[in-house]
């Protein structure tokens, strides 16, 4: 080894978990490295991402326990109910138009600065996309801007629906000028993204031809999609 301080030892000095070793006093190279790491740590602390990430981490702590625990607690209930002849089969159905089942599949936009949900936004706002697919598994979310341009918002890098429960962290975005509409398609199996994008683009073009807003009509039914949810998000013209 070189005899210089390792990154572990230097990081401990940055957070003051350890006293400076004798080597440091006589090694200009280690002193320079330590100074660089201290400077980088100071810059990270004042970066806006530092506070946003802290908010997300603390929000994780505040989140309710995973459903798996509930499942574990109640796993004996089904055999017991069967034994008692009490079991019944529940078939989930779409609610009538205009009725939203509490906790049903939907998407919301949460402003990070104050936690406001589906509130009017301003350019530069940092927002988190909250995806609630239950009782379905997969979600596909598009954003349509005021000009009718449709883009896949989530999964950002994919070509088909994603499973929101596999998300390590919620998708986060910075709001740009102009109102937008979110269209989420929920399903039991992954849906390809392109037909959804095309269906929305066709309707947006039809709305533009009528000189109406891009969400004037719902999209055509998408094959394989069990549920569609739309959220219009107004964005003020100035930050």
């Amino acid at each position: 080894m070189s005899g210089h301080l390792s990154r572990l030892a230097l990081d401990e000095l940055v957070v003051e978990d350890a006293p400076p070793p004798a080597h440091l006093a006589t090694c200009a190279q280690c002193q320079a490295k330590l100074a660089r790491l201290r400077e980088a740590a100071g810059a990270a602390r004042v970066a806006p991402e530092f506070a946003w990430t802290r908010t997300r981490v603390l929000a994780q702590r505040a989140a309710p326990a995973p459903a798996r625990r509930l499942l574990r607690t109640w796993r004996w209930a089904v055999p017991l109910a069967l034994a008692l002849g009490l079991a019944s089969v529940v078939v989930p159905r779409e609610p009538p138009e205009g009725v939203r089942v509490k906790g049903g599949p939907f998407v919301s936009v949460v402003r990070q600065s104050d936690g406001a949900v589906d509130a009017p936004l301003s350019p530069g706002d940092v927002v988190t996309l909250s995806l609630k697919p239950a009782p379905y598994r997969y979600a596909l979310v598009f954003a349509t801007d005021a000009a009718g341009k449709v883009s896949l918002l989530w999964p950002a890098r994919g070509t088909q629906s994603g499973d929101p429960t596999a998300l390590v962290m919620p998708p986060t975005f910075i709001v740009t000028p102009g109102d937008f509409v979110l269209d989420a398609f929920f399903s039991d199996a992954p849906l390809p993204a392109e037909p959804g994008r095309a269906a929305l683009a066709i309707r947006a073009a039809a709305c533009a031809a009528l000189e109406l807003s891009s969400d004037c009509q719902p999209p055509a039914r998408l094959e394989g999609a069990a549920h569609h949810y739309r959220l219009a998000v107004p964005v003020s013209s100035s930050p």
């Binding site: 990081d11 957070v15 980088a40 740590a41 100071g42 990270a44 530092f50 802290r54 603390l58």
Partner: peptide, 19 residues
Amino acid sequence: GASELADLYEKYAPTVHGR
């Protein structure tokens, strides 16, 4: 706890970010 987590974040997050 929330405050312990916040304290750990304050202390270690910048070095975690750096690495």
